[in-house]
Design a protein around this nucleic acid. Sequence first.
DNA 1: CGTGTTTGACCCGCGC
DNA 2: GCGCGGGTCAAACACG
Length: 251
Amino acid sequence: MDSHISHAQKVEALEGQLDRLRKENEKLKMMIEVMRSHCSTLEAQILRGKNYFNDHDQYCSKVKWIGNAPVRNTKVTHVFARAQFEKNGLVVKDGFQWRKYGQKVTKDNPYPRAYYKCSSAPGCPVKKKVQGCLEDRSIVMATYEGVHNHDVPTNTSTATGLDKTTSYSTDYDQGLSTNFNTSPFKPNISTHLDLTLSASTSTDISTDKANNNNNNNNNNNNIEEYIASLTKDPSFKAAIASAVARTIVRQ
DNA sequence: CGTGTTTGACCCGCGC
DNA sequence: GCGCGGGTCAAACACG
């Protein structure tokens, strides 16, 4: 009987902890959103201030813009995006599948430029170049060339590493950084930080809460998973570190 | 074994 | 014509 009471108390305590974590999560999410919007504005100002798309800029000069139109018939789109560090290096996740076909170190930039072809559909002519920004390694310049002959793959969760059940549809679109030209396909650059955690965890938690009478063990496990995934998630750590650093810099 | 990445070689355009 | 630099190819390699 005692063990039953202490078990119930334990569950209650864990639920309280879960609520606190949820609130904290929401707060952090809001803070990061605000900071990200400040950051995007500043980045845009900095980049414009440095005439990124004027005379001496490497990208502009290499891509050969005439007036507002690229030389070739294919559409060329420049996108600045926050890079995501993965085992293969810098990546820009935009919902399409890309096959890397080359890499080159260019003269003006120590960061290698990677060349990708769209592999979401056979015969898709779209190419993408991705190169780290000189001033800020966490920002990459992605140059899209061509127009996709297909829609964004429906299985975006696979392509983006995001899960369908997370609320990415809004966050995801808002994750776009500065887009200097009209995109032919609205590339969705994922700066998304999944503070709601992987869907399996978060949905399990809410579901379990509804059924918590017979799922106490699962609940305990999920809370532990929740905390563990928060502390282990490198993007969470990076986002927190970045947010804290920016706050300090702004002061 | 299939698929994707790496990386050196090659091609091509441009400036001198 | 030559050299330079960006873009692409393709064989070798890695990985699941």
